[in-house]
Computed example of a mutant assay.
Amino acid sequence: MFHPLRVAEIERLTDDAVAVTFQVPSELRETFRHVPGQHIALRRTVDGREIRRTYSICTPASDEPALRVGIRLVEDGEFSTYALKELAVGDTVDVMAPTGRFVLEPRPGHFVGIVGGSGITPVLSIVATLLARCPDARFCLVRSDRTAASTMFLEEVADLKDRFPDRFQLVSVLSREDQQSGLPSGRLDEGRLRELLPALLPVGSVEGWYLCGPYGLVQAAERALRALHVPRDRIHEEIFHISEPAAPASALAEAALAGAAPTVTTAGSVPAAGTALPGGPAPFRAPAHSTVTATLDGRAGSWPVLDGEPLLETVLRNRADAPYACKGGVCGTCRAFLVSGEVRMDRNYALEAEEVASGYVLACQSHPVTEEVELDFDR
C-alpha cells in the first residue's frame, strides 16, 4: 500500500546524486518505522503509466522515523532523472512502507560492510544504528567509489568515524582517482579482496558481512569471502544495479555464488541458492495450461496464466494491489511463499539461500512448471 508523503528536504550530495527526506505524519509513524538496511518503493504516474523504483533508507532507525533516501542518477533512468531534475520540496510522492531483508538488528559483535557507489545507502543506516545502540559492537566499512567527488554521504561517514573512533574502521578505495593516502586506486576485484581482508581484520571472527552495490562488486566480494572460508550464512547481499542479462539455465552452477542462479523450485523441496540441481539443471517445460492461486491480504483468487508471462503479471491483471517494485528480481518486494506446485525463477538477486530453501520465490521472475501453482503473499 502506498501513502502520499510530502518532500521535506532535497540535499545535493554529488553532481549526480541527491538525498530526499520525506515528512512522515504522526498517524503513519508506525507504518514507516524501519529496521536498519530496509528500503522503500516510490511511485509516480506519467501519461497513465506507473513508474516504481526502490531506494534504501539511509537514516538510523529511531522512535521518531526519519525517512531519507539516497538517489543516484542512472542513465536513461525515468525516476532518478525526475528526482534530480524536477522533484522539489513540497511535492508529494507515493511511498510504500519499508521492506527488505538486507538488515542487521543491532547486537554485539564484529561486522563488515563492503559497498560500492550508492551501495553505501543502506549500510549507512546499519552502521549508525548499530554503533549508537551497542557499545560492544564494531564495524569495518570497505567502500569503493569512482572518485572523491562522486562519493555519496562523505560527511555522514566522516562523522561516524569522529564519533566512534575505536569501533568504526573505514577503508576507502577510489577506482579512477589516486589518493594522497590509503590504498592504491583500482577496482576491488576478487583477488584484491582476498589479499586485503585478512590484512585488515580477523576474517574468521566476523559475525556478519554486508555486501551492497553493483552486481560485479557483490559477486567478487562473495567469491573472495567463500575462498577465505566464510560460512554462507554470514554473508548478506543486496544488488543495486544489474547490467548483465539473466543467466541461462546451463549457467546455474557458475552463477550460483552470485545469488543469480535461476532455479526450478518446488514447495517443500526447494534447492538453496547456490546449489546445482541433481544431475545438472532441469529442463524447463512450460505446461500447456496453468493456473495460479494467490492469497493477498487474506483474500485468495485463481486465474489462468497467459503463455510466457511471469506469475506476478497474472496476479496484477486481477489484483492491482499485488506488491512489486523493480520487476527485475532485485528488490524482493514481490516475495511470495510457494504453497504448492513448481515454478522456474529466471533470476534471483534478492532472496537469501535460506529463504529459497524455506519455499520463497520472486513472483516477478517465476513461471509455472506445473498446471497448478499456489502462492501466498501474506506469509
Rank of each mutant, 00 (worst) to 15 (best):
E11H: 06
E11L: 12
R12S: 14
R12Q: 13
D15E: 14
A17T: 09
A17W: 15
Q23K: 10
P25Q: 07
E30F: 07
T31F: 05
T31V: 15
T31M: 06
F32D: 08
R33H: 08
R33S: 14
V35H: 05
H39F: 15
H39M: 02
I40L: 08
L42S: 01
R43N: 01
T45D: 12
V46G: 00
T59K: 07
P60D: 00
D63C: 01
P65L: 07
A66S: 08
A66V: 15
I71N: 02
R72M: 11
E86W: 14
E86P: 00
E86M: 11
A88V: 05
V89N: 04
D91T: 09
D94G: 00
P98G: 07
R101N: 10
G109L: 10
G109C: 11
H110V: 13
G116Y: 06
L124R: 09
L130A: 07
L130M: 07
L141K: 01
S150C: 11
L154C: 10
L160K: 00
F164E: 02
P165H: 05
D166Y: 03
R167P: 12
Q169L: 06
L170C: 04
S172K: 05
S172M: 02
V173S: 05
V173W: 04
S175N: 09
E177C: 04
E177D: 08
Q179I: 00
L183I: 01
G186H: 08
D189N: 14
G204S: 08
V206T: 03
Y210N: 02
L211M: 05
C212I: 04
G213W: 10
L217M: 12
R226M: 08
P231I: 03
D233F: 01
E237K: 09
I239T: 09
H241G: 10
I242F: 06
E244D: 15
A246T: 11
P248E: 14
S250Y: 04
A251P: 01
A253G: 14
A256H: 05
A258W: 01
G259Q: 09
A261P: 08
P262D: 13
T265M: 15
A267Y: 02
S269N: 03
V270T: 15
A272K: 04
L277M: 10
G279S: 10
G280P: 04
P283F: 03
R285Y: 12
A286I: 01
A288S: 15
T291E: 13
T293Y: 13
R299L: 04
R299H: 15
G301K: 02
S302C: 05
W303I: 03
D307E: 14
G308E: 02
L316E: 06
R317L: 08
A320V: 15
D321R: 01
C326V: 02
K327E: 15
G332Q: 06
A336C: 14
N348F: 01
E352I: 02
E355M: 12
Y360R: 11
Y360P: 14
L362R: 08
A363M: 00
S366Q: 06
E372L: 14
V373E: 11
V373N: 03
E374S: 10
R379I: 09
